[in-house]
Write a protein that binds this DNA or RNA. Structure first.
Length: 1121
RNA sequence: ACCCGGGUGGUGGAAUCGGUAGACACGCAGGACUUAAAAUCCUGUGGCUUUGCGGCUGUACGGGUUCAAGUCCCGUCCCGGGUACCA
């Protein structure tokens, strides 16, 4: 046979393919389209390693296969070219990142071409190319100029929002829109823009004078150099991705992603459904405490919450405090602070009449929840019931005054507009015959009860709240002034069903209420605790073993059902950034609350039937609720779902709780204080952001003397004054965009890569539509994939593209690992331990060592140690604890990375075995989505296969040794079956079994001595996606003048797929004993007769009676005796 | 701690619906060719047992359902990934 000279063959065809532009693709409406996309690489200096191509090969196989099937296949490649390594290299060497990046891209392209991918390089996309990032900037402007309209549930242009303001939509400044200054208008709009600026924390490293990315920070120190890192507050760009939380979640239903990846995205978004519940604060009562309340909740000593009434006092119900004209019905006011204080005063100094009435109507005594001194709009009502909407006023003497009378009338009118009924009593009426008064109230409640339908209640709970605050507070953004904030703690809980298990409340130490509610006696303790929290760095908070800490505030809330007083604590374990920053603690149902209760000696009321919660909380959502009732309400005997619903309904009736959905996901930071990224098309005029007009795009990166950050936390761009300071006096934004900006939409640019007028022509995106198959690593599960999904939805909402999910199907290729060596070290003792040194590694930190410091015998030579310490100066002066005078590493398999320098280069493999063998071997390694360590051991098997295939088709003189001798039945069977199997397996992305099938097919054909040229032509076609060079060479040797790329995947001849006989395994009692052939259409009774007459079968039956005879056609026979 | 994956020979891994466990390879052992080596080809290769035919056993472990379980159910252990005082 003529030797299989892969080097020549591969070189030859690569050249021909390139010259003939065989991979060029254009929109062709006559063919169905298929879009196969790889996650484009970041062109690092280290070049490709063997892990990269795994996914690329898989997608290339699919692309080539789809082409054989007649699809118009888009299979592009490009580079995610902005990034930190090039910038760091620039800082070190002064080399412009564009130059290094360019060089690296060149090298990548070469390496990729060596593997024989079918990319249309005409469509190459480079994110650092101004012609590309022009459109990244343009999309940013679309984000900036859009807002998310919750009514339409989609993004729309900011002009629509401005129009709403012009039509009287409320704003935070409480003035008509046209009266706002531009700064105020922009401030208002900033709350809605999909791209906005806000203050937030960054990782600041003083020693390096730079901002660090999260993964550049290791254990609270900079990865490079190990310098301390602190959190610094800076103004940063954000993308309002949280508005898309629900749609990103819903969208997952419509796409074919791996379950685990969907799960990750779901967790990241972290939607949790629950309720927000208000608890009224009883600040004053703590002062009267004489004994520890926590151990003594039932029966509560605080059931009577009324302190001795103070002398009557004329309240100035105080028209003067009402700002502006109160009755025009269009403007809303938050209640003034003084009014609230005043309301509190009144709570303390109740009139006798009010007290009497209060004692008789509180705690749902009349079947409805009343509150005292309840502010509605700018009024303070004596008693208010939100459902039914009822207000009871008890009048003192001054109400007889004429002016006041007038005012009362007007106020009653306004309250009626809001849907409230006002009943008015005099002090005397109440004091003389409270029973009569109560009856009147009860009748009113009953009258209204008929109308207690849900929608009415929903209205009632929102109508009296300032529209602006309502929308904001429901989004959990904590902006604006909330009505009644001073009087209530709002908590978020996913377990409203456990409300009777509440025995304390916890606020985050940063909670704004803390200062206000804190009792004087507790002030010192609370301040100390807050200071303690502040002093603790992020590092300490995270690394320290989770010990629960906290402190009592001295304040209480009232339990909405039982009326008992519940102490309020502050504790670090409640985070200000999630939910409302406050929780109702249920120690019997939450382990953290349980620990806390135990530590602070708080009661642990048990509400779970038959479950012991003394030692441990019961966190399951199963079981029956008990001990959960008050006078008029009970959820005893209900399960989780029922109880939750009932409590929610009731809270809703009472107007103190609403269903609430919270998300863990935060808005995405979009600012980097770096050089090598897209500049923002934003300038500032007196702090007001102005967008660059589209015709000015791209805003290109200027040349800069030093790539070092400015040292004050700003990007190097800030040092170029003639770039920063524009002729018109505006100042340019000096942040740059993060790495994910460019990669969030690149799949669209491939469709129309050279368009100078738009990011992607709609006609083209309408043709190519979604990516049919997207292949890439799972490490992008949340970052890149969520961002590009969001961008896609925004572009869709704004009408630029017609689909709202970018990727139809996603396959995660597994990681190909490399060997990594590591050691354990003790930061305090300053010691580094060798392998097999007997020490508890549990308390030590691990450090992975670049491979170059490790010699073949896995030891660390003396020189190695020196070099190592020079590079990793944080270990300078550490003692190396040896084992038998040797330092040995521990070994593991990890992701190949430039940083660990354990990279295996594909070029070497290709030089030795050829690209086709390399391609097939990577596919043969195992399922595409599985992680596997790289080893070259098995490659010989694939290499032999290709050589054998070659040698079987080509004789010693290099002449085709296939012929026209008709193929026999067996050969036609195997080739047809393999054709079917390969097609099926590719659709299933089971590439490893494809390779096995090829081997089996060749083995059989060889055994059958089949050299039929048609059989082998078919073989070549199905082999070509995997081994394109070899297939093409043999294809042309067979006399074909067109490329095998344009061949048609052979039709499968069904007649060869079905056998007419089958070798039945005959088992007796489930154990296979012999094999007997039967025709597939053989009669069942015939088979039974024959089987039971067989001597071997008889032997195993041992004369026992046959109980059952099971025949599964084409599968098995089982005889049960 | 929680949520996802996964656990099959010396190794990588096969095994549509529950239906012959270990396909296809690597490695190893023996043989052929060769002066020799490489390459190539042939034979064998889960474990235990038996001279042999054969038998027993076997898919992390323990139970269960079934005529039949790697596959389904319950419990346990281990490995990998993700997330985390998220209420």
């Amino acid at each position: 046979m003529s030797a299989y000279n892969f080097t020549d063959i591969e070189k030859k065809w690569r050249k021909i393919w390139e010259n003939n532009q065989v991979y060029k693709v254009t929109e062709n409406v006559n063919k169905p389209k298929y879009y196969v996309l790889d996650m484009f690489p970041y062109p690092s200096g280290a070049g490709l390693h063997v892990g990269h191509p795994l996914g690329y090969i898989a997608s290339d196989v699919v692309a080539r296969f789809k082409r054989l099937q007649g699809f118009n296949v888009l299979h592009p490649m490009g580079f995610d070219a902005f990034g930190l390594p090039a910038e760091q290299y620039a800082i070190e060497t002064g080399q412009h990142p564009a130059i290094t990046t360019d060089k690296n891209m060149q090298r990548y392209r070469e390496q990729l071409n060596n593997i024989g991918f079918s990319y249309d390089w005409d469509r190459e996309v480079k994110t650092c190319d101004p012609n590309y990032y022009k459109w990244t900037q343009w999309i940013f402007l679309q984000l900036y100029n859009s807002w998310y309209n919750p009514e339409l549930n989609k993004a729309e242009t900011i002009e629509n929002l401005i129009a709403l303001y012009n039509n009287g939509r409320a704003n935070q400044f409480e003035k008509p829109w046209i009266e706002l200054t531009e700064t105020e208008q922009q401030k208002e709009l900033t709350q809605y823009r999909l791209a906005y600026k806000d203050e937030s924390f960054i990782n600041w490293c003083e020693a390096l004078g730079t901002v660090l990315a999260n993964d550049e920070v290791v254990n609270g120190r900079s990865e490079r150099g190990g310098y301390p890192v602190e959190r610094k507050r800076m103004s940063q760009w954000f993308l309002r991705i949280t508005k898309y939380a629900d749609r990103l979640l819903e969208g997952l239903e419509s796409v074919d992603f791996p379950e685990s990846l969907k799960e990750m995205q779901k967790n990241w978004i972290g939607r949790s459904e629950g309720a927000e519940i208000e608890f009224e604060i009883l600040t004053d009562y703590a002062k009267n405490l004489t004994h520890n309340p926590f151990l003594d909740l039932t029966p509560s000593p605080f059931i009577d919450l009324t302190p001795s009434p103070s002398p009557k006092e004329e309240r100035g119900a105080d028209v003067s405090q009402v700002q502006g004209g109160p009755f025009d019905g269009t403007r809303y006011f938050n209640i003034g602070k003084d009014s609230i204080k005043y309301a509190r005063e009144n709570r303390k100094n109740k009139t006798d009449a009010e007290n009497l009435l209060w004692q008789n109507i509180r705690n749902n005594k009349l079947g409805a929840k009343f509150r005292r001194q309840y502010p509605i709009e700018n009024f303070i009502t004596d008693f208010a019931c939100l459902a039914p909407k009822l207000i009871i006023e008890v009048d003192g003497g001054y109400h007889l005054d004429n002016e006041q009378n007038q005012y009362d009338k007007l106020r009653a009118k306004r309250l009626e507009i809001l849907g409230f009924k006002v009943i008015r009593f005099t002090n005397e009426e109440v004091l003389n015959d409270v029973i009569k008064v109560l009856k009147i109230i009860e009748v009113k409640i009953k009258e209204d009860q008929a109308n207690w339908n849900k929608s009415a209640i929903e209205q009632s709970t929102t109508a009296f709240i300032n529209e602006d605050t309502a929308s904001i507070s429901s989004l959990g953004e904590g902006l604006g002034v909330r009505l009644n904030e001073d009087l209530k703690v709002r908590v978020f809980t996913t377990r409203p069903d456990t409300i009777f298990g509440v025995s304390f409340m916890v606020l985050a130490p940063e909670h704004p209420l803390v200062e206000e509610i804190c009792a004087i006696e507790q002030k010192t303790a609370v301040d100390d605790y807050i200071n303690y929290c502040k002093s603790r760095s992020e590092l300490e908070r995270k690394s320290e073993t989770k010990e629960i800490t906290g402190v009592f505030t001295g304040a209480f809330v009232e339990h909405p059902f039982t009326g008992k007083a519940i102490p309020i604590y502050i504790a670090e374990y409640v985070l200000m950034g999630y939910g409302t920053g406050a929780i109702m603690a249920v120690p019997c149902g939450d382990s953290r609350d349980h620990t806390f209760a135990q530590k602070f000696g708080i009661a642990i009321p048990n509400i779970f039937e038959g479950i012991d919660v003394n030692e441990k909380a019961w966190e399951e959502k199963t079981g029956i609720i008990t001990n959960s009732h008050c006078d008029r309400f009970s959820i005893d005997g209900l399960n989780f779902e029922e109880a939750k619903q009932k409590v929610l309904d009731s809270l809703n009736h009472l107007g103190i709780g609403t269903k609430q959905i919270n998300y863990r996901m935060r808005d995405a930071g979009f600012s980097r204080q770096r050089y090598w990224g897209e500049p923002f098309p934003i300038t500032y005029n007196n702090e007001i952001a102005t967008t660059d007009p589209i015709e000015n795009l791209p805003i290109t990166l200027p040349e800069v003397k030093s790539y070092k950050p400015s040292g004050d936390g700003k990007s190097p761009l800030s040092t170029i004054s003639d770039w920063v300071n524009l002729p018109n006096g505006n100042i340019r934004e000096t942040d740059t965009m993060p790495g994910y900006a460019g990669s969030s939409w690149y799949y669209l640019r491939y469709m129309d890569p050279h368009n100078l007028n738009t990011f992607c022509d709609k006609q083209k995106s309408d043709y190519w539509q979604q990516v049919d198959l997207y292949v890439g690593g799972a490490e992008h599960a949340v970052g890149h994939l969520l961002h590009s999904r969001m961008w896609c939805k925004v572009l869709h909402d704004l009408g630029y593209i017609s689909f709202d999910e970018p990727y139809k199907k996603l396959v995660n290729q597994g990681m190909i690992g490399g060997v990594v060596y590591h050691f354990y070290y003790d930061q305090n003792e300053r010691k580094i331990y060798s392998d097999s040194v007997n020490i508890n590694r549990g308390n030590l930190l691990q450090f992975k060592v670049p491979n170059e410091y490790v010699s073949d015998d896995e030891t660390f030579s003396e020189e190695g140690i020196d070099g190592f310490c020079k590079e990793f100066i944080q270990f300078e002066g550490f003692e190396f604890v040896m084992n038998n005078d040797k330092f040995t590493f521990e070994k593991s398999i990890t992701k190949m990375s430039k940083r660990l320098r354990n990279v295996v280069n594909p070029d070497e493999i290709i030089a030795k075995y050829g690209a086709d063998t390399f391609r097939m071997y990577e596919m043969f390694l195992g399922p595409i989505d599985q992680d596997k360590p790289w080893n070259t051991k098995g490659i010989d098997g694939v290499s032999r296969f290709i050589k054998r295939f070659w040698g079987y088709c080509i004789d010693d003189d290099g002449i085709i040794s296939l012929n026209n001798e008709p193929a026999n039945e067996a050969s036609l069977k195997i080739i047809n079956r393999t054709l079917k199997k390969i097609a099926e397996d590719i659709e299933k992305y089971a590439f490893n079994t494809c390779i096995s099938s090829f081997m089996i097919c060749l083995n059989e054909l060889q055994a059958q001595k089949c050299r039929n040229v048609d059989v082998f032509k078919n073989f070549l076609i199905m082999l070509s996606p995997f081994a394109p060079h070899t297939a093409e060479e043999l294809w042309s040797k067979l006399g074909n003048t067109t490329t095998i790329l344009d061949a048609v995947y052979p039709a499968i001849d069904e007649t060869y797929l079905n056998d007419d006989a089958f070798n039945y395994p005959i088992s007796i009692n489930g154990k296979t004993r012999i094999i007997m052939p039967f025709a597939l259409d053989a009669d069942a009774s015939e088979i039974e007769k024959t089987v039971l007459a067989d001597s071997t079968v008889l032997k195993w039956i041992e004369g026992k009676p046959v109980k059952k005879f099971i025949l599964v056609k084409g599968r098995i026979v089982n005889v049960v005796v």
